[in-house]
């Protein structure tokens, strides 16, 4: 068969291999798709649970990208993602609001800050300072706000503060008073 096809044989061989690969991978995709989707939702739920321990359900609005959190059918707050530009790249933060202007808390979910210095933004020592603040107070102390920067990690601290404040201000117009 090799000789009969001559110069077209390589094309045929490669095509066959690619089609077999496509078949195997589409099978694999349909086998894992639901589980991967479920894991993603679980991750979001766990992330929201960090800020709203009493949460019983959440609702995600696709257009505004805001999660509305409920506990026993009463609305207890909102959450959304914010991004700060840190020392090692983007810092992804989940911001929780009790109402339009009051922070419930924050949690850093992904970052690439320096271990031992910038990664202290993960610790409760830092994130607890955001609890209960008004959005207008979210700034470093030296910039007139109420959040103390981490010693030796001003850039990382400022990135988180800016990320939280910008996200909260951006989403404020979508939130009811």
């Amino acid at each position: 068969m090799k000789d009969k096809l001559g110069q077209y044989y390589p094309i045929l061989a490669l095509t066959v291999v690619v089609f077999i690969s496509i078949a195997v991978l589409s099978g694999m995709d349909s086998f894992t798709r639901d589980t991967i989707q479920y894991q993603k939702e679980l991750k979001i739920q766990r992330m929201l649970n960090q800020l709203f321990r009493e949460m019983s359900a959440y609702d995600f609005d696709e257009s505004t990208e805001i999660y509305t959190i409920t506990a026993d059918d009463t609305k207890i707050g909102y959450a959304f993602l914010g991004v700060g530009v840190g020392y090692g790249g983007n810092i992804d933060i989940v911001v929780g609001l009790e109402n339009k202007t009051t922070l419930r808390g924050i949690a850093v979910i992904a970052h690439a800050e320096t271990p031992g210095l910038g990664d202290k933004i993960l610790l409760p020592d830092f994130t607890d300072k955001f609890v209960g603040l008004d959005i207008s107070e979210v700034n470093l102390t030296r910039d007139g706000g109420k959040v103390d920067a981490i010693t030796g990690a001003t850039i990382s601290s400022r990135a988180v503060v800016d990320g939280v404040r910008n996200a909260a201000m951006e989403k404020a117009e979508f939130l009811p008073d």
């Binding site: 390589p10 061989a13 991978l25 991967i36």
Partner: peptide, 27 residues
């Protein structure tokens, strides 16, 4: 496997296995 397309063919094979590993771990 014809000699002149062996590298593309090997890459397709390897990439398929990597994707399987990737999807399995993600799930």
């Amino acid at each position: 496997v014809p000699n002149i397309v062996r590298i593309p063919i090997f890459i397709v094979v390897i990439a398929s296995f990597v994707t399987i590993a990737d999807l399995t771990l993600k799930a």
